[in-house]
């Protein structure tokens, strides 16, 4: 049902320092988190595909493209993908800037393993739920889009609480026809009761406003 749940989340580690890179892998493997290692930003950007669960951990200080720049590049591709920035020489302005630019967290080296693992889990979870919301709203949109024009007009009437007779009068069609449309759109939207229909419509409307 949910495509993301078919994939295990993956933690991408971008750091030019090999020992830091590999030790973090060692830590994450101990809690059964799969990892992928990259020694610079470009290497990661080349391999990165959006939509898969996980998060990325970046070092700030790297040659050619530094962590702050890589962060912006990732946000360009997928604004929701969680980025945890790690640095050995943090200062407050840099941290503020990173958070403003949408980083999931800004962690100073050396870090507490528990804290790091919790933040990684949180990032993966948030991205998952974001992805799920996104997919649900995509699906709802698809369902509503499958209605014919007449069915949508009938749906509007139902949502406004009008009886079938009134809808039939307004649309210059017979009550019988309205009833047919009504049952068709219910089955298309996979709802059984009018209550479910209204809840679904509200949910779809909320998602429409958010994108």
């Amino acid at each position: 049902m949910n495509p993301t749940s078919n994939h295990a989340p993956c933690v991408y580690i971008v750091d030019d320092d090999q020992q830091v890179r590999e030790s973090l892998e060692w830590l994450l493997e101990s809690v059964n988190l799969p990892t992928k290692l990259y020694q610079n930003g470009q290497e990661f950007l080349d391999a990165f595909t959006t939509g898969l669960p996980g998060c990325v951990i970046l070092d700030v200080r790297m040659p050619k493209m530094n962590g702050m720049e890589l962060h912006l590049a990732i946000k360009q591709i997928d604004p929701n993908f969680p980025v945890i920035i790690v640095t050995g020489h943090a200062d407050v302005p840099m941290a503020i800037r990173a958070m403003k630019e949408g980083a999931f967290d800004f962690i100073e080296k050396p870090y507490n393993d528990q804290h790091m693992l919790e933040r990684i889990q949180a990032a993966i979870h948030e991205y998952n739920s974001l992805q799920q919301d996104h997919q649900r709203s995509q699906e709802l949109k698809k369902r509503f889009d499958s209605l014919s024009k007449r069915e949508q007009q009938v749906l509007q009437g139902i949502l406004q609480g009008k009886p079938n007779k009134l809808i039939a009068d307004e649309l210059f069609i017979s009550i019988k026809t309205v009833e047919v449309h009504r049952s068709n759109l219910m089955s298309k939207l996979e709802v059984k009761t009018v209550t479910d229909l209204v809840r679904l419509a509200i949910e779809a409307k909320k998602d429409d406003a958010t994108p």
Binding site: Q19, S23, L24, W26, L27, S30, G88, K109, P110, D113
Partner: peptide, 18 residues
Amino acid sequence: INQPLTASINYISGSLRR
């Protein structure tokens, strides 16, 4: 110093969890 320190902490934490 932070770099090897971080690595050591990571390794030891990982080991402890294992």
